[in-house]
Amino acid sequence: MTNSIYTTAAPVARLIEELHKLPGIGPKSAQRLTYHLLRAPAEDARALAQAILEVKEKITLCSICQNVTDADPCSICDDHGRDSASLCVVEEPLDILALERTRSFKGRYHVLHGVLSPMDGTGPGDLKIQELLERLRSGEVTEIILATNPNLEGEATAMYISRLLKPLDLRITRLARGLPMGGDLEYADDVTLTRALEGRQEV
């Protein structure tokens, strides 16, 4: 950049650089966001900065389920109306939101904060698996629902955890992987079709 005639002011360049670090934000989007903030009222910018700081200062992980929370234990772990025998294991906190929207699961959760990804070198030690094992020690949980994503990493994680939990004599289930709503039978791949057949239900 030394031989360019016009250079961006240093604070602007720094903000672009910081925004560019965020997932899904390319260099063009980072620039756009930066110039948007430059034009925005000062109080909007301050509110954003404050919100970012508060997230880092006030939000922690629930010591029981590892979900992000501002109170420990989190509201789900603290809810005595929920079934503590059934535990749903998810990859990320956002997955809890998706499952809670269905209102059809009344048990509790455990967040792994990631997924086994052999090709990226992410191993079991990088996930909250040890915390899961410790949680199961009390014997209160009798069913584990593995709700990892139906892709290679999610399957690897589900297989790894179910193998680890085998000696504990729990009922271990995996979310059914069948035909998506709005999907066409003719476009379904063999694995999906086979699983949809296996998971067929009485009507």
Partner: peptide, 9 residues
């Protein structure tokens, strides 16, 4: 090869 560490686990 990053996947070798998983093989070792």
């Amino acid at each position: 090869m990053k996947s070798t560490s998983f093989l070792q686990v």
